[in-house]
Amino acid sequence: MNINPDMDTLYSPSKWCRRFNGDGATKYFSDFIQRVSNNVRTKIPCQLNLSYGAEYHEKIDIFGFDLPKDAPIFVFVHGGYWQESSKDESCYMAQMFYQNGIKTIIIGFNLCPHVTVEGQVKEVTQGVKKSLELAEEWGAKKVVIAGHSSGAHVVACLLERLNQYTESQRKLIVGLLLVAGIYDIVPIVDTYANDLLFLTKDTARQISPMYKDIERNDIKIYVLVAEFESPAFIEQSEKYYEKLKKLNFKVELIKYKDHDHFTIMEDLVHDTYDMSKLIFSLLKN
């Protein structure tokens, strides 16, 4: 595989962080979310590893199990360029939500190359379906679904798969948060990330939300991007926002000042953070 050095730099978020040199931001983020998530699992009543499919990693974790059954729900899809991380270190925001009366569901899924990117999207689609079924069973009225980085790409892919959910399940979704994502993954073909993805330009285009014809719906969509992000990620966020706007979606583009690809999620442990307040406004008002 031929790597384009310029493209590789553009699609390496750690290279655009101002806090660290090299890959320091990636290591800090990984250590941070692991440490906080480990602590969360010891402090919050939770149900772990509830299966939604036959594969080993097709499981969800539920936090705030002792909250009122009809409590609002935050569903999260982690990033990691479709090939790294897991649900186990992705519940770091759950304690903050718990303290504010919100349940958290973290979706687990298989990573590339065990599955293709398209296969991963299919798994998450089913994980979200399981989450919405539970929301209905519990009598919850509001669900927000968020994804970070490659997880934002996967959540964006849900827009063309909403017909896999019942009408009552779709009505539960009051917002999609696409955080620091990429929506045209064709450029990834020429980067280091493709070593384990095995994408071609054709297969990458087929699984890119930027090129999809999407039927309009009433779900509010928030495209969130950091100030100190790769120019490519910023441009993709702006273009995807414009695409959705032209299709008459209820969409908003929000840029987070003084944040990078990783702090935009790290700060979700604080209920004073602007993104936390945005989620509260969707789930609690």
Rank of each mutant, 00 (worst) to 15 (best):
M1N: 06
D6M: 09
Y11G: 01
K15A: 02
C17I: 05
R18I: 15
F20H: 01
K27F: 11
F29S: 03
F29I: 11
I33K: 08
R35W: 10
R35V: 03
V36Q: 08
V36S: 08
N38I: 06
N39K: 10
V40K: 00
R41H: 12
K43S: 04
K43Q: 13
I44K: 02
C46N: 15
C46S: 15
Q47V: 14
Q47G: 13
L48P: 10
L50R: 04
L50D: 04
S51R: 10
Y52L: 09
G53K: 15
G53L: 15
D61S: 15
F63G: 04
G64M: 03
G64D: 04
G64E: 07
F65H: 09
L67F: 06
D70V: 10
P72Y: 00
V75E: 13
V75L: 10
F76R: 04
V77F: 06
V77W: 04
V77Q: 05
H78T: 06
G79L: 08
G79H: 09
Q83C: 15
E84V: 13
S85V: 13
K87H: 06
Y92V: 03
M93T: 12
M93V: 12
Q95D: 13
Q95F: 12
Y98D: 00
N100A: 04
G101W: 09
G101T: 11
G101H: 13
I102L: 09
K103R: 15
K103Q: 11
T104D: 09
I106K: 05
I107R: 05
G108A: 09
N110W: 07
H114Q: 15
H114G: 06
V117A: 07
E118T: 15
E118A: 14
G119S: 03
K122I: 14
K122M: 10
K122V: 11
K129C: 15
K130Y: 11
L132A: 05
E136G: 02
A140C: 03
K141L: 11
K141P: 04
K142R: 14
A146S: 15
A152F: 01
C157R: 07
C157E: 10
L159G: 03
L162C: 04
N163M: 14
N163R: 11
Q164S: 03
S168W: 03
L172G: 12
L172S: 01
I173T: 02
I173K: 09
L176M: 08
L178F: 00
V179A: 02
P187Y: 02
I188D: 05
V189N: 04
D190K: 03
T191Q: 01
T191C: 05
F198S: 11
L199H: 02
K201N: 06
A204V: 08
M210P: 02
M210V: 03
M210T: 03
Y211L: 04
K212W: 10
D213M: 00
I214S: 05
I214A: 02
E215I: 04
D218F: 08
I219Q: 00
K220T: 13
V223P: 01
A226S: 11
S230C: 10
P231G: 03
F233Y: 14
F233A: 04
I234H: 07
Q236W: 08
K239I: 00
K246A: 00
V251G: 04
I254E: 07
K257L: 14
T263P: 13
T263C: 12
T263I: 01
M265K: 02
E266T: 09
E266H: 12
H270Q: 13
T272M: 07
S276F: 15
L278T: 14
L278V: 06
L282C: 13
K284W: 09
